[in-house]
């Protein structure tokens, strides 16, 4: 297990470093500056601003300084949200985004695995085809369509649920639902395929022949190998949920990381965009790592 962990870290850390390097260089060589505005600053002020933010130094010096700071958890000052550091904005937004993404992941896994099992119970039956169709549509339902539609139906027409902000627990329902839908569809499909394959394998037939109850056969013998593709999907799913959260936070006006990211991107707030990209990359690599470790738990052959 430790060997897998170390081997995976050996690829994950250089990847993270490459992300930082690439986005840093891209950001700094980009035309235009965050201090561009309708009324150009006079040269002296401009020079002073550049000096304050260290933008007058050569690129390699800026990069070294930035890496050093990032290692200490300091992503620099936000250029647009004056008086805020990027780390401060991240500390504000991250808990909201993580709660949103975490709840959506749990919901998607629960719905998807349950749907996949129900479908695989009788392959080709009406329930299987119905769930298959539902999950094919769910996969194609991007959060920026589901989000507004849910708001329209449950918020504006029926007035059952709040449409924005986070004033009550009920406010989480619509955003989590919209975010979880495509992931749930993908999980259902993976579970269904994996389970249908597992059900006809020798060890499952043996378990049946031993007279075990159908439930035991399903849960103890068929499900673990069937869930392997689902677990390897955890990494991409985390990436999908994080990107989806960007839209969901914009649609529902939630004070999460994604909203800062979009605002930062639209306003050329380089330190903010860079900080959030690094954080997202780190999170996604972390999820891939967790997926690899779980993989080892489910499939003894992968422990080697």
């Amino acid at each position: 297990m430790l060997a897998i962990l170390l081997r995976r870290l050996a690829t994950a850390l250089p990847t993270l470093l490459a992300v930082i390097l690439l986005s840093f260089v891209l950001m700094r060589t980009a035309p235009g500056s965050p201090f561009d505005s309708e009324r150009p600053l006079d040269a002296a002020t401009r020079a002073a601003m550049d000096r304050t933010y260290g933008l007058d130094q050569p690129l390699i010096v800026q990069l070294g300084r930035y890496l050093g700071n990032v290692l200490q958890g300091d992503f620099g000052p936000s250029l647009v949200y004056k008086d805020f550091t990027v780390s401060g904005l991240i500390a504000q937004g991250l808990p909201v985004s993580l709660t949103l993404g975490g709840l959506a992941l749990i919901l998607a896994a629960a719905l998807g695995i349950a749907g996949g099992i129900l479908g695989a119970l009788r392959p080709g039956g009406w329930l299987d085809r119905w769930i298959g169709f539902k999950s094919a549509v769910a996969v194609a339902l991007p959060s920026f369509v589901t989000g507004p539609l849910l708001v329209l139906v449950f918020g504006l027409w029926l007035s059952w649920l709040p449409v924005s902000g986070l004033d009550s627990a009920a406010a989480w329902i619509l955003p989590v639902l919209a975010l979880a839908t495509p992931t749930a569809g993908a999980v259902a499909k993976l579970t269904r395929t994996g389970l249908a394959e597992a059900m006809v394998q020798d060890h499952v037939r043996t378990a049946r022949a031993r007279g075990l109850s159908p439930l035991t056969v399903l849960v103890r013998h068929a499900l673990p190998p069937a869930l392997i593709p689902v677990v390897s999907y955890l990494g991409p799913a985390a990436a999908g949920l994080l990107t989806g959260a960007v839209v969901i936070e914009t649609v529902f006006g939630l004070p999460g990381l994604g909203r800062y990211f979009v605002q930062g991107a639209l306003n050329r707030d380089y330190p903010l965009v860079l900080g959030v990209v690094i954080l997202y990359a780190g999170l996604i690599l972390l999820f891939n790592l967790i997926a690899d470790l779980l993989y080892g738990l489910l499939d003894p052959r992968a422990r080697g």
Binding site: T243, V277, Y280
Partner: peptide, 24 residues
């Protein structure tokens, strides 16, 4: 293929967004 694996682990959407921000 190691390069492909590494790129797979990246947040694509964010890379595209960074490209959009940088190059207009």
């Amino acid at each position: 293929m190691r390069v492909v694996d590494a790129l797979y682990a990246l947040p694509f959407m964010f890379v595209v967004i960074v490209l959009m921000v940088v190059f207009g």
